[in-house]
Structures are given as structure tokens and as C-alpha cells.
Amino acid sequence: MMEPESISAGSGGRLTAAAGAVVLRYLRGAGDFCAYVVSIFQSFRSLRFIRMRSVNAIILNQIVYTGVHALPITFVIAGLLGGVVIIQGMTNLPKFGIEGYFDNLLVIIIARELGPLVTALIVIGRSGSAMSTEIATQKWSREILSLEIAGIDPRLFIVIPRVAASIVSIFCLIIFFDIAAFMGGYVISLTQIYVPVGVFFQNLVFSFSLTDLLSTVIKSLLFGLLVPLISCYYGMMPRSKFEIPIYVSRAVSRTLFIIVVLNAAVSALFYFSWME
């Protein structure tokens, strides 16, 4: 019969080995992703052989899908979120005697945090998953191979236009999100207190700082870069039709995780007092 101590040592060893294997798997995955990003940069070497009009069409289509088609849902979500923030503000701020700070509350919560984050979530849900699925299907139906055998680098033709389109789309969507959220907040605030629209938006503008603007620009750049990169990376992975949903799901969950972590990191970088 095995001694209790050796059982414990054995299971501890197995646990360590299992944890080590998981860490190694993640490190290998991170290494593969980095190699993929490097190969995308290397594909710029064939940029001079590409006629920009063929790439422009892809960028334009992607902007229409990622940006323009996402506008209605972004407006609705932003308006409701702006309203909810104001409802919470109106019911809670008076308890602390700071009920005059609705504008600041909107800027702090909407413009700094919710705008970029929720916009990225919308883009991941709509376009990120669509990109992964589209590329995985193209790979399965050997469309990617067809590009390759035509001497066209699929990374340059597929990934880079989507990165460019996502950066533009996410930046514009964040601005639209903020505007819609402010409008939603204003409409809800009217039920409690009348503030002239000019005064409301003037206060909002005054509440904005250069840091807020810079943080939004950096977040939109980072999110615009990472959402298509990760989505395309996982889209290229499936080796059979059976694996397509597995990798699409992985693309969405990993992108979500990375975006939430990055959002927190950028906010900490910009707004922690020790950074000032």
C-alpha cells in the first residue's frame, strides 16, 4: 500500500507537470503568434507588386461591414448604456452631495472606459468571428491556396487590409459610441432635471482632457490591430471542416481576453496617479 506522503508527492508532481504543460502550451502558442506577426511584416516586401486598387476594394468592403453595418447596434447599445450610467448617477451621486457631476461621470465611464471596450466587444462579436469563419472557410475550400499559387501572399492580401479597415472602423465607432452614449445620457437626465443641450455638451467638452483623447486613440489603434490579427491567425488554423467552429470560438474568446487585459493596462498607464 502506498504511503500517504508518497501519494501526496506523486499527485503534487503530476499537478506541477500538468501546470508546466499548460504554461508550455501557452508559451508555444505565443511564440507561434509572434512568428505569424513577423511573417506579416515580412510580407510587406511584396507590397510594391500589388495594385492598390485591388486591396482598396477589400479595405472598403471591410470598413462597410465592420464600421458602417455596426452603426445601428452601436448606437442602440451606447444610448442605453449612457442612459443607465446617468440613472445610476442620478440615484447615487446625490447621496454623496455631488449631483452636479453628471458630465464628468459620463466622460469618466463612457469616454474613457466603456466606449473603447464595448466598441471592441461589438467588433469582436460581429467582425472578429466573421473574419475567422470566412478565412477558415476560404482555407478549407482552397481559396487561400489559390492565392498562394497565383504568387499572391495571402497575409498581404487577407490580413493587412483587414487590419487597416479595423483600425479605421474601431476609431470611428468609438467616436459614434461616445456621441450616442452622451445623447442617451442627456435624454435620461431630462426626466429629472432640465439642462440646456448646449450647456450639457459644453460641460462634456470641458470635462475632456488630452489624456482622454490620447487614451482613446491608442486603444482604438491597439484594438484595431489585435482584433483582426488574432481573428485571422485562428482563421488560418483549421485543417478540416470539423475544426472550424473550434478555432472560431477560440479566436473570439482569446481576443476578448486580450482586449479586456489591454484595456485595463492602457487605463492604468494613463490614469494611475503614479504615472502623472
Binding site: N61, S141, I149, A150, G151
Partner: peptide
């Protein structure tokens, strides 16, 4: 390598037409 691939025509059984 890209030029070499571009210079050879290849028609395979899956056709691989770009669907969009």
C-alpha cells in the same frame, strides 16, 4: 518564390475560386 508561383498556371480539382 512569388514570381515563380505566379509564372506557372495551376488548375486543380477544387478550383478554389475566391468566393467573394
Amino acid at each position: 518564390k512569388l514570381r515563380h508561383k505566379n509564372g506557372i498556371g495551376y488548375l486543380h480539382g477544387d478550383y478554389g475560386l475566391i468566393s467573394n
